[in-house]
Computed example of a mutant assay.
Amino acid sequence: MSKSAVPEHTYEADLRLLQIELVKLQHHIIDKGKRLLVIVEGRDTAGKDGSIKSIVENLSPRDTRIIALNKSSPREEGEWYFQRYIAELPAAGEFTLFNRSWYNRAGVEKVMGFCTDYQYKQFMATVNAFESLLVSSDIQVIKYYLDITKEEQAIRLKDRAKDPLKQWKISPIDQKAQKMWKTYSDARNKMLKQTSSTLAPWTVINANDKKLAHLNLIANLLTRVHYPNKNKKILKIDPKIVLTWAADSKKLPKLSK
C-alpha cells in the first residue's frame, strides 16, 4: 500500500475529533428516532472495510449495524431483488451501513455475468424510484463510491496476498479485478450517471490514500446530517478527495480510468 501523506499522530488526532462528532450524531439519531443509511461501494481493495471501521469504531454496537450480505440463497434468487435488503434497513434510532449493497447488480454482477441483461436493466430502471421511496419514508440515504487507480489496486492486491491476516479477503473476483479494470470502469460510470438522483446522489471518494479518505469521508458525512452542537470548524473537506457533482449533470468528476 502506498505511504500516506498524513503522519500517523496527525491522523489519530484528527480522527478522534471526527469520531467525537459521530458520537454526537448518534445521540441525536437515538434521541429523535432518526434513521440513517450509509451505502459504501467501490473498487476491489478500495478500503471499504477500513472506512466503515473508522466510522463505527466508537459508536454504540446496539444502535449501529454493518450489513455485508453474502451471495443470494436459491430462495432469495426467486425474490424481488430488493427484498432481502429491505429487512436490513435501519429502524428508528439506528445508524446502518451497507458494505456493498443492492448496487452489486450494477457492478460485480453486471461485470462478472452473475445476472442477466434483463435483470440489470430492470435494476437500473427501478433503483432511483426505490431509493426515492426510502427517502420519502424518512430514511436518510447517503451513498459513497471509493475510487482508486489501477496502479494502487495492483499494489494492494499484492499486499493482501502476502498478509496472513487478510487471506479471507482474497476471492476469485478480486483476482480478475485488474484484468477487467476497463469493464468495471464502464459499469461504474454508467451506474454513477444513471443512479445519482437529487434525493440520493453519489459522492466519490479518492481513496488512494486511505487515511485521507477516512478523514474526508467522515467530515463529508457529518456536513450532510443534522445534529446539535456540531463543531463545524473541524469539518474540513479536500475537494481533490471528495468529488461531488450535480445529480443531473452528465459530466462525471475526474475518475480513475
Rank of each mutant, 00 (worst) to 15 (best):
K233M: 14
D63V: 09
L255C: 10
F130W: 13
E151S: 11
Y120S: 02
I39P: 13
Q19A: 08
E109L: 08
D117Q: 13
T203G: 00
R224K: 15
P74Y: 11
Q178Y: 05
K211I: 06
E77G: 11
K176R: 13
Y118H: 15
A87V: 02
R160D: 11
N189T: 12
W168S: 10
A207T: 07
E76H: 06
Y81L: 01
Q194W: 06
D49G: 15
T10W: 09
K182N: 12
A161L: 11
G113Y: 05
V108T: 00
Y120M: 02
R188G: 06
I234K: 08
K236P: 11
T195R: 10
D63S: 14
F123H: 13
Q26T: 01
P164T: 08
P201E: 06
E79Q: 13
L215W: 01
Q19T: 01
R105F: 08
I155K: 13
S137V: 09
K233W: 07
T244D: 04
H226K: 13
E41H: 04
E88W: 06
D117F: 14
P172F: 02
K150A: 13
Q83Y: 09
K190S: 09
E76A: 00
R100N: 07
K251P: 03
Y85S: 05
L255R: 02
D248S: 12
Q167D: 07
R65N: 10
N99I: 11
W202N: 00
N216H: 10
N206E: 12
Y11Q: 05
Q119W: 11
W181C: 00
H28T: 15
L157S: 00
K169L: 07
D49F: 03
I170L: 14
W168D: 00
K211E: 08
L222C: 08
A161D: 03
S249T: 05
N189L: 02
E151G: 03
Y81W: 05
P164R: 01
D49E: 13
V135L: 09
I205W: 02
V135E: 14
T183H: 10
L222E: 05
I67L: 06
N70T: 15
L89Q: 01
R100V: 09
P239V: 05
S54K: 10
I66C: 01
L255N: 03
K53S: 09
T64M: 07
T223L: 12
I237H: 07
M112H: 09
F114H: 09
L243P: 00
Q194M: 14
T10V: 15
V204F: 08
L192P: 02
K24G: 02
K250R: 11
Q83W: 10
K211R: 14
Q119I: 01
Y144T: 11
R224M: 08
Q140W: 13
Y227D: 04
K257A: 14
Y184L: 12
K48R: 06
K110F: 00
A13I: 05
N99Q: 04
N99W: 07
K162R: 15
P201T: 10
N220G: 07
I20S: 10
R100D: 12
L18A: 03
K150Y: 01
K143G: 05
L37V: 06
K210F: 03
A177W: 00
M124T: 15
Q83C: 02
G33P: 14
L18H: 03
A91K: 14
R62Q: 09
D174S: 06
L59C: 05
Y81I: 01
L36Y: 14
V56D: 07
D117L: 15
P201H: 12
G78Y: 12
P253D: 00
A177G: 01
I20M: 08
A154W: 04
P253R: 03
R65C: 02
H214K: 09
